[in-house]
Amino acid sequence: MANTLLTLLRKPLTNSLLSKTNNISLTSLYIQDVKYLFSKASLGLDGFSQQSEKIKLQLNNIADKFREKMSEYVTIDSKNMIFTEDLKNMVHLTENDQDIQLTVEMLKKYNKQNKSLRFGNYVFGPVVMRMFYVHNKPDLALECFKSEELTGIFDQHISFQLLLDLLYENQRYQEMLDVFQIISEKQLEGQKYPKNVIVLILAACYKLNNQESLDWALKLWTQLSEVGHIPMRRASTFCAGLAFNQGKPDIALEILSSVRNQNYTTVRNLKVVALAEIGRLDDVIPILKFVLSDDTPQNENVHTFNRDVLEKVKQAVSKSNNPEITLEFNRVEQMLIKQGHVSQTSLDEQLCSEIQRPPINRDFRAQQNFQPRGFNNEGFQQRPRRINYQRPGLSELV
């Protein structure tokens, strides 16, 4: 796939293809700015808020005195240590900018202390990043992530994900790409390209929606292909959507070919609109028909096409001046509408819809029915546990 994509990138478009792609409306997919990419629950933010309320209730009577004591402990001449429990409590007690700054100073001192004195397995990176996220502090989160005084604190995949998602929420897309350069050099747990991080980075490229971001995304995509990394479906659709928006439907189709399940709603819609854009209407009609043929009483999930996608197909059909194709498309379109297979949600909205939970990881550990080691909402490492995977319904795959 990498070689084919490289060939496409190096091969100049034919005049006929140029005439078609130059007329693409770059706003057809790029319409809405959806605020969140990963849901709060999937990032552990709900759990963090619950824990904060619990600790605030427990320390209600002594919270102010505790803050005063910690403020004394972080002074330059203080010889008092910052213990794990102190920092845990302060992270969850934060209510204003002063509290957050105190927490950062405590974290810096904590990180300087003799690490041999730490006997627990508490990891502060994800918890502190959740604090930044809850209080919407992208600048401070970025500053701390880059701080030499906090080296090693945020070296976890979930911390990367939280930081990038916070930047995404604040539409700091270019800074997301800059952060990725730092992340890719760390190679934690032998991974240079964490899957959720790749999703966020390609989402940033999609949102930037310019030629530079497309070049950046395709370079990354080629690197992923060369090392055998298989991006998650959402990463693939972001990259393909960006290629389409930038007038490269042929590249979009090549990227979509890497998705294992071609019947995902977003994949199917992108494939249809890209094929229509390059005049492959003979290939579009069977895809539209398949949704109708798959509409059985046993199938509880309704397969849909986005309204804006069908409109673009209709425009391509009209330009084709082919009576046979026009007749067949009109017939199929009416059946799709009648049977409820047309979604009023735009393709852009669907591409950027909130990810409710991490997609199934089908790597070796998943095949062994073990959940990868991670960090819970309170910062403790979770031990692997056996889980039973179920095939998600189509409504979960949108």
Rank of each mutant, 00 (worst) to 15 (best):
P359E: 10
I100S: 06
L117S: 14
D139W: 05
P384C: 08
A366S: 15
L166D: 00
K319Y: 08
N61H: 11
Y122G: 09
Q187H: 14
S353R: 14
N111Y: 03
L220Y: 03
S293C: 10
M176T: 03
P126K: 03
P12Q: 10
E354G: 04
F380W: 13
F48T: 05
Q156I: 01
T84V: 11
A243D: 06
E72N: 11
S78W: 06
A217C: 07
V227E: 10
V227G: 09
Q58R: 15
V259Q: 05
V342G: 02
L214E: 04
Q315M: 12
V199N: 09
N321T: 04
P12R: 11
S19M: 13
K192Y: 09
E226F: 14
R357S: 12
I62D: 11
N321Y: 10
E175G: 02
L351E: 02
V127E: 00
P231L: 06
Y73F: 15
Q211T: 10
N196M: 13
Q298K: 14
L256P: 02
K54A: 12
L256T: 00
S42H: 03
E143Q: 13
E148Y: 12
N111R: 11
L107V: 09
Y173G: 02
C239D: 04
V342E: 05
L87P: 00
A41M: 08
Q356E: 09
M70S: 07
T27A: 10
A204H: 00
Q51L: 14
K195A: 12
Q262W: 04
L281A: 08
S71A: 15
I337A: 08
L18F: 06
D295L: 05
Y30H: 15
L5T: 05
D33S: 10
Q298T: 14
P392Y: 03
T27C: 07
N96A: 06
L142W: 02
A141S: 01
S213I: 02
Y206G: 03
N15M: 11
E72K: 14
S225K: 12
S343C: 06
N23D: 12
R10S: 13
R373S: 13
S213W: 00
N80M: 13
Y30A: 11
L200N: 01
Y193G: 07
D97F: 10
R118G: 09
P138F: 01
Y73E: 05
V34Q: 07
N269I: 00
M81L: 15
R383T: 14
K314T: 08
N376G: 07
F160N: 01
Q191K: 14
I182R: 13
T21P: 07
Q58A: 14
F380T: 09
M90R: 04
R391E: 13
A240N: 01
N369M: 14
R233E: 12
L29F: 09
S225R: 11
E105Q: 15
P286N: 08
L327I: 09
L347V: 06
S320Q: 05
P372S: 10
K35F: 07
L150S: 01
V91Y: 05
F38G: 03
I325Y: 04
N80L: 11
S39N: 06
V272I: 11
G340T: 05
K112I: 08
K35P: 06
S78F: 07
A203Q: 06
I24N: 02
L292F: 09
